[in-house]
Simulated assay, not measured.
Amino acid sequence: MHTNLSPHLHTDECNLLIKELSECLGNNRFRKFLLVCDDLEVKVEQCLKKEIIAKRKLHNELAAKQIKEKLEKLRKMKD
C-alpha cells in the first residue's frame, strides 16, 4: 500500500509516474490482476522511496542543527 498519492505531496517526477499508473490501471480494471502495470508500479514505489529518504535526510539535518543550537545555549548559560 502506498502513502497518500495526492499531487501536492510529491515531486513532479513521482506525480507523472503516479498519473501513468492510474491511467494504466484505469483503462482496464483487470490489468491489475494480469500484472500488466507492474513495471509502472515498481517505478512509483522506487520514486516514493527516494522521496522518503530525501525527507528523512532533511529532517535529520534539521534535528541535528536544533540540537547543536540547544547545546550552544546551554554552554553559554553555563559560562
Results as ranks from 00 to 15, higher is better:
residue 57 K to H: 04
residue 68 K to A: 11
residue 25 L to F: 10
residue 54 A to N: 08
residue 51 E to Y: 03
residue 47 C to K: 06
residue 4 N to Y: 01
residue 29 R to W: 15
residue 65 K to E: 06
residue 54 A to M: 08
residue 6 S to P: 02
residue 58 L to Y: 12
residue 24 C to G: 02
residue 46 Q to M: 03
residue 30 F to H: 13
residue 24 C to N: 04
residue 18 I to M: 03
residue 32 K to V: 14
residue 29 R to F: 09
residue 37 C to N: 01
residue 10 H to I: 02
residue 17 L to N: 01
residue 53 I to K: 15
residue 35 L to A: 08
residue 44 V to G: 00
residue 63 A to K: 15
residue 73 K to C: 10
residue 67 I to G: 09
residue 23 E to Y: 09
residue 36 V to L: 11
residue 64 A to P: 04
residue 7 P to H: 01
residue 57 K to R: 04
residue 32 K to Y: 04
residue 2 H to P: 11
residue 20 E to D: 11
residue 65 K to W: 08
residue 56 R to D: 02
residue 51 E to R: 02
residue 70 K to L: 11
residue 58 L to D: 11
residue 33 F to K: 08
residue 42 V to I: 13
residue 16 L to Q: 09
residue 57 K to N: 04
residue 75 R to N: 14
residue 1 M to K: 14
residue 53 I to P: 00
residue 33 F to P: 00
residue 69 E to M: 05
residue 2 H to W: 08
residue 36 V to G: 10
residue 28 N to E: 07
residue 4 N to D: 04
residue 51 E to C: 05
residue 74 L to N: 13
residue 2 H to L: 10
residue 29 R to I: 11
residue 11 T to P: 03
residue 59 H to R: 12
residue 78 K to S: 13
residue 4 N to R: 03
residue 52 I to E: 11
residue 76 K to N: 14
residue 40 L to Q: 02
residue 13 E to H: 13
residue 30 F to Y: 15
residue 52 I to V: 11
residue 30 F to N: 15
residue 4 N to M: 03
residue 13 E to I: 08
residue 50 K to V: 08
residue 9 L to S: 01
residue 51 E to I: 06
residue 11 T to D: 05
residue 8 H to W: 01
residue 44 V to A: 02
residue 7 P to F: 02
residue 14 C to G: 06
residue 10 H to M: 03
residue 3 T to G: 06
residue 32 K to P: 00
residue 35 L to G: 07
residue 19 K to D: 07
residue 1 M to V: 13
residue 37 C to S: 03
residue 22 S to E: 05
residue 77 M to P: 05
residue 6 S to N: 01
residue 32 K to Q: 07
residue 51 E to H: 02
residue 51 E to P: 13
residue 5 L to G: 05
residue 67 I to Y: 14
residue 2 H to Y: 06
residue 46 Q to P: 08
residue 46 Q to R: 10
residue 39 D to S: 12
residue 52 I to A: 08
